[in-house]
Each structure stands twice: as structure tokens, then as C-alpha cells.
Amino acid sequence: MSLDRTDVEKIAHLARLNIAEQDIQEYAENLSNILDLVDQMQAVDTQDITPMAHPMDAIQRLRLDEVTEGNQRDLLQTVAPAVEAGLFQVPKVIE
């Protein structure tokens, strides 16, 4: 499996990562190498194997419907890059 520049650019956009122009080639090579490595899997017949998403086949526990968290805005916004009037600020979004 070999990735080209367009693939890298497309993936980088999906992942919202700015990749410097001069690094694209290296990413393409590294990613292609990794995909070659993982392609070893394709040799194995897994037709009837149930995928294993979790180490143990445990099931989801249910939480009681109780309000346990109060207003922590001041504390939680101490780490925010930009806040005004209690709102997180981002560059204008056009819907």
C-alpha cells in the first residue's frame, strides 16, 4: 500500500493537521511503510472471527440518573485559551 501526496493531504485535512509542504513526502513514505507493515494481516483468513473491540467481553454498567456536578465554570475555564461572557471564543463560524 503506497500513499501519495494527495492521500496525505486528504488525511491531514480530515485530521485537521497542518503539515508543512516539505514534510509531505516524508509522511507519505512513513505512512506507506506502516501500511506495508500492517498489511501482513491481510494474509490471515479471519472470515468467521468475531471482532474484539474490548479485552474482556464485559458489558456497559448503567449510571443512576442523578445530577452530581454543579457549576464549575470558573475553575474549568481557567485553562481556556479565550473566554468572554462565559463563552468559549473561536474565530467566527459561518453556518
Binding site: A82, E84, A85, L87, F88, Q89, V90, P91, K92, V93, I94, E95
Partner: peptide, 12 residues
């Protein structure tokens, strides 16, 4: 997302 509250920013 609140688009109208600030001139160049969106409030979340």
C-alpha cells in the same frame, strides 16, 4: 454556537 454575540468571534 452563538454567532451573533460578538463581531468576529463565535461563542460556544
Amino acid at each position: 454556537s452563538l454567532h451573533e454575540e460578538f463581531p468576529n468571534m463565535t461563542g460556544i
